[in-house]
C-alpha cells in the first residue's frame, strides 16, 4: 500500500465524525424556523442588494463593463453639468468683478478729480484720505 493510500485510509476515518440522524431532523426544523423569521425580517432593500450583487457576480468577464460604463456616464454628466454651472457662475460673477476692474475707475476719477490734485489713478494708494469736493461728502478709500 502506497503512502498516499495509507494517508487516504487514515483520512477516511473522519467520515465517522458525523452527528446522528436526530441532529439532522432538528437541523431541518431549525432551518424552517429560521426561514420564516428571515422572511419577516428581510427588507425589500436587502433582497434587492443581494440580487444586484448576485447578478453582478454572474456577469462573468463582462462585469468590468458595468463600472466602466457607470464611470463614463458619471463623467459625461459631471462634464455637462459642470459646463452649465460654470456658465451660470460666470454670468453671476460679472457684476462684482466689474466693480473691481479698472473699468470702474473712470467713474471714480470723474468724481474725485478736483482740478488741482494729483493724478486720479494714484489717489487711492496715496493714503485714501484725499479730499473730494465737499459736495461729495469727502473721499472714502475703497
Amino acid at each position: 500500500m502506497s503512502d498516499n493510500e495509507k494517508l487516504q485510509k487514515l483520512l477516511r476515518l473522519k467520515n465517522y465524525e458525523t452527528p446522528g440522524e436526530e441532529y439532522f431532523d432538528d437541523f431541518l426544523d431549525q432551518l424552517k424556523k429560521r426561514q420564516r423569521q428571515d422572511a419577516l425580517k428581510q427588507s425589500a432593500l436587502v433582497l434587492l442588494k443581494e440580487r444586484v450583487v448576485e447578478w453582478y457576480r454572474e456577469l462573468g468577464s463582462a462585469k468590468w463593463a458595468v463600472p466602466a460604463g457607470s464611470f463614463a456616464a458619471l463623467a459625461v454628466t459631471l462634464f455637462t453639468l459642470g459646463g452649465k454651472m460654470s456658465e451660470e457662475e460666470l454670468s453671476l460673477s460679472v457684476q462684482p468683478e466689474d466693480a473691481k476692474t479698472p473699468k470702474s475707475e473712470p467713474q471714480l476719477i470723474e468724481l474725485q478729480l478736483p482740478s488741482n490734485t494729483n493724478s486720479p489713478r494714484s489717489m487711492p494708494s496715496q493714503g485714501g484720505s484725499s479730499v473730494l469736493p465737499a459736495a461729495f461728502g469727502g473721499y472714502r478709500e475703497l
Binding site: 473522519k14 467520515n15 465524525e17 458525523t18 452527528p19 439532522f24 437541523f27 431541518l28 432551518l31 424552517k32
Partner: peptide, 22 residues
Amino acid sequence: DTAAFDELVTKYSPKLYGLIYN
C-alpha cells in the same frame, strides 16, 4: 414547493456537514 426543498436539505445536509466540519 417547500417540501421539495426540505427533501433536498435532508439529502445533502449530511454530506455538506462533513465538508464544512472537516
